[in-house]
Design a protein around this nucleic acid. Structure first.
Length: 528
RNA sequence: GGGCCUGUAGCUCAGGAUGGUAGAGCGCUCGGCUCUUAACCGAGUGGUCGCGGGUUCAAUUCCCGUCGGGCCCGCCA
């Protein structure tokens, strides 16, 4: 039972076999637009591996390299078409689209880098463009140029159409048009490379200037050695046989004499069944995640299944199920709920552990996310009121049933507040219309029949004369319904119509009681 | 041409490395005073684990094959 290991631990176990002074787990992201939960997966995985290695007593760190020397290939959402003029130009040479950052790269990496701390992720940040400018790649470029014939041989093993004999694994940035994907380097002398560009320009450049780029598979291999990378997660596109990992692995060994890192290929995450696409605007970022839930829940999303499993993310209704699942796992972890089997318990605990940033001693307060979508719409962001609603509707865990709001610990109130803002954002951003309702400030224009009116009047009288618990009111209302010989559905509908203007709503009795009594009575009497 | 993932309850998916005929959530049904709702609580219901072989005392799990679904690489990175 304790033999069960999370896949992150297994990877750490494998890495533990390697005899290195320090593990370097690398992640890297192309800055081709907003960085979303799909392509920032490697950061989360890399961080988790580092954490697991440290737990074993190994020295380890996570690094992140911005692939910002790559050329722009597609204009990312939501930039205007006019950005097409930058196609082919390295990201690092493109201006900030909103004039808020020093350039394009900063504009898109800032939203990610600024929130990593919230996820408890520590990493060393590097810029590809910077590395070229500082000359870190220089020796590797020299080797690549000299060993170009060998590299061609390796590449050709995987190619249908062999590369030309004069091909060089290096692309200068054109002096004239600024593009890096339209140049062809055909010769070199020392550090000077001769090239021609599709724009018609023929030129020479010095590799030391940083105005050029190793071809990807060679760059990747060089990078492994430069940073002494021992492990790296990457998208499945790199992992296909004959793909870039296969080739870079050989380049690394034969050209740079470095053992390729332990690979962790991962599957892409789809959004409501659609492939995430930066150019089409179909994506969901870690920052957006934090608007609607705690950082641990994203970790849970990523770590609950093996990295090559397909995962779909849907922030709409299924998100509520997801959060409830997370809460359940949390309860199981803290022994507040029993899992269906020992095996399941073991597994879920492992996943929970892997998802936590700091594991708290006692179980965090879990005001039901789903229920709070209702409570919030009644009470707004008023934790005391919301707490009262939770209490009245038996939504509190046993240990809190008797506690009043004033008895709550600070961390519980904190948690309640945070979840309230998450729920608010979810309602604003992703909730479908049918779960939304609003207590109308004035009597909405509604059509209800005489029996329904009679029902409301009688209930108003009841409320005026007595204080009820939800159950008592519920029962009392049914007596009225019975007396009037009406369908319950019609009765409830009347309540919702005069209060929210809709035909449906939250469970009527507790809903009515959670509202201001005078308002309800007046409303039921159709007074205002 | 090569490779990966996937097929398990009505739906979404765990499990599979260490073989001993299966789990969750949602749904559904029922109950909670006559109890609406994708928003409450409780109980229950639910599967020849895609198909065919093989190994084995025993296969959902391992092996081979096959069919269906999704995706990646074929040089852009």
């Amino acid at each position: 039972m304790i033999l069960l290991k999370h896949w992150i631990e297994r990877i750490a176990d494998d890495l533990n076999e390697k005899d290195v002074p320090e593990h370097v787990v690398a992640s890297g992201t192309s800055i081709s637009g907003s960085i979303h939960i799909g392509n920032s997966c490697d950061i989360f995985i890399a961080n988790a591996v580092t954490k697991a290695l440290k737990k074993q007593g190994n020295k380890s760190k996570t690094i992140w390299i911005a692939d910002d020397h790559d050329p722009l290939r597609k204009v990312p959402y939501p930039l205007p078409k006019s950005y097409e003029k930058y196609l082919g130009i390295p990201y690092s040479n493109i201006p900030c689209p909103e004039d808020c950052c020093s350039n394009f790269v900063e504009h898109f990496e800032k939203p990610l880098l600024s929130i990593l701390e919230k996820f408890g992720i520590e990493l060393e940040v590097f810029s590809g463009a910077d590395m070229y400018k500082k000359g870190i790649y220089d020796d590797y470029i020299r080797i690549a140029l000299e060993k170009a014939p060998e590299i061609i041989k390796i590449f050709n093993k995987f190619r249908e159409h062999p590369l030309k004999d004069n091909w060089l694994p290096y692309n200068p940035i054109c002096d004239e048009c600024g593009r890096v994907n339209t140049t062809y380097a055909h010769g070199f002398e020392g550090d000077i490379v001769n090239y021609s560009c599709k724009c018609g320009h023929k030129g020479q450049m010095d590799i030391k200037s940083g105005n050029g780029k190793l071809t990807w598979r060679v760059e990747w291999a060089a990078r492994w050695k430069i940073f002494q990378i021992t492990c790296e997660p990457f998208g499945k596109d790199h992992a296909a046989s004959g793909g870039s990992y296969d080739v870079s692995k050989i380049i690394s060994k034969e050209i740079y004499d470095y053992e390729a890192p332990y690979p962790i290929p991962y599957e892409w995450i789809t959004l409501k069944g659609e492939a995430m696409s930066k150019s089409h605007g179909v994506f969901f970022t870690p920052g957006q995640w934090l608007e609607i839930a705690e950082p641990e829940t994203l970790n849970y999303f990523i770590f609950r299944s093996k990295p090559l499993k397909h995962q779909d993310f849907n922030p709409s209704m299924p998100f509520l199920d997801f959060i409830e699942q997370y809460d359940r796992v949390e309860r199981i972890y803290y022994g507040a709920e029993e899992a269906s089997s020992e095996k399941e318990e073991e597994k879920l605990k492992k996943i929970y552990e892997a998802s936590q940033i700091d594991i708290s001693e006692s179980m965090p307060f879990q005001p039901s996310y789903r229920f709070m979508t209702v409570a919030y719409q009644i009470a707004g962001h008023d934790p005391e009121k919301v707490y009262a609603i939770l209490k009245k509707d038996s939504q509190l865990p046993k240990s809190m049933e008797d506690k009043s709001f004033d008895d709550l610990q600070l961390k519980d109130i904190d948690r309640l507040n945070r979840r309230l803002s998450h729920v608010k954002n979810w309602l604003d951003l992703y909730a479908p219309e049918f779960v939304k309702f609003q207590v109308q400030k004035k009597l909405p224009r509604v059509e209800i029949n005489d029996v329904q009116k009679e029902f409301l009047l009688k209930v108003a009288d009841l409320l005026e004369n007595e204080n009820y618990t939800p159950q008592e009111l519920h029962d009392a209302m049914y007596i009225v319904i019975h007396d009037l010989d009406m369908k319950p559905q019609k009765a409830f509908m009347a309540i919702y119509k005069v209060i929210t203007g809709k035909k449906q709503g939250p469970r009527a009795a507790s809903f009515v009681l959670s509202l201001d009594k005078d308002l309800v009575i007046k409303r039921f009497r159709m007074e205002e």
